[in-house]
Amino acid sequence: MASKAGHAAVSMDRRGGINDDIGEEKRLELYRLQVVIREAEQRAFDLFLQNLVKGTSHLSLGQEAVAAGFAAAMQPKDLSFCTYRGHAHTLARGVPVEAVLGELMQRDNGLMRGKGGSMHLTSEPHGVMGSYAIIGAHLPIACGAAWRAQYKGDKDVSVCFFGDGTTNIGAFHEALNFAAVWKLPVVFVCENNLYMEYTPIGDVTAVQHPAADRAASYGLERIVIDGNDADAVYRAAQTAFAKARAGHGPSLIECMTYRHSGHSRADPAKYRPEGELEKWKERDPIKIYRERLKQFGIGDDQVAKIDADVRRIVDEATEACKAAPPPSTDILFTDVYADGGWAWRN
């Protein structure tokens, strides 16, 4: 059932034509963001095989279009709330590759100097308000940030990314209802990659589309898009953001996609039926987008330049991380409390 859902979605929303609503500059940005994520995530995987990425890591290989499409539609002040599968969304907001890889490699140049790790990437200056590793926890938190915007009259939107598995935890339903009742400027983005960790989402969910088929319960529109087509994601994001900024409340968008690797680094993903991965790789978001660029008359040389440029950035970041020292131990006891320290007694 799950893979059928995926194929139903890929036939959706294929606009085309020269001089459409997206334009060359934005398309190059969308492409570049996807390539940055692809190259950085692939590098993270390679570094893991070399035992240089420690702990766990959850890659977004194959899901790049979701992160790129939303980030490209966001304003600088918009806020991202991510899950433990958050490298892609962090990179998409412009956080340097070196800071992300440094955190994965637990070096002093890491985004949080090794205090958070792969699952908790956070960069306030980039609007990345945290990556949350307890399933569903960040949906209510995104509601709160949106409440602040509503209360203060700020125009930013809070964007909350999560997987299909999240749709079966209580916090998802509490947050959707809360956001709808309070008409909050928050956009909930379900990346349906067909698997809840190791189990097909269809095996454990009462409806075919785990997010979209629940939307009606909260008075929201049912939205399912092709999450491997960055243009489709970008357009859906724009529509939802405009609605939120206009004070018309939240949206819930289900993006059909597929992760090329396992759930985490420990998972070889042997539970997938034969041929499924290959089928989805034919619909690789970057492959789709290279064709799209060609369709819109963007030259191979521009594409090749972006590819080379990104590879150089990732190579340089890798070398910088390899050369970086481990975190200095003087940060061990800092920032437990707002005074900078950890004192719990006098």
Binding site: P140, G144, R148
Partner: peptide, 14 residues
């Protein structure tokens, strides 16, 4: 969960 999560998101942002 929505009450405490919303409180946190509001607190984080001002």
């Amino acid at each position: 969960q929505a009450i405490l999560g919303a409180a946190m998101g509001a607190a984080m942002t001002g």
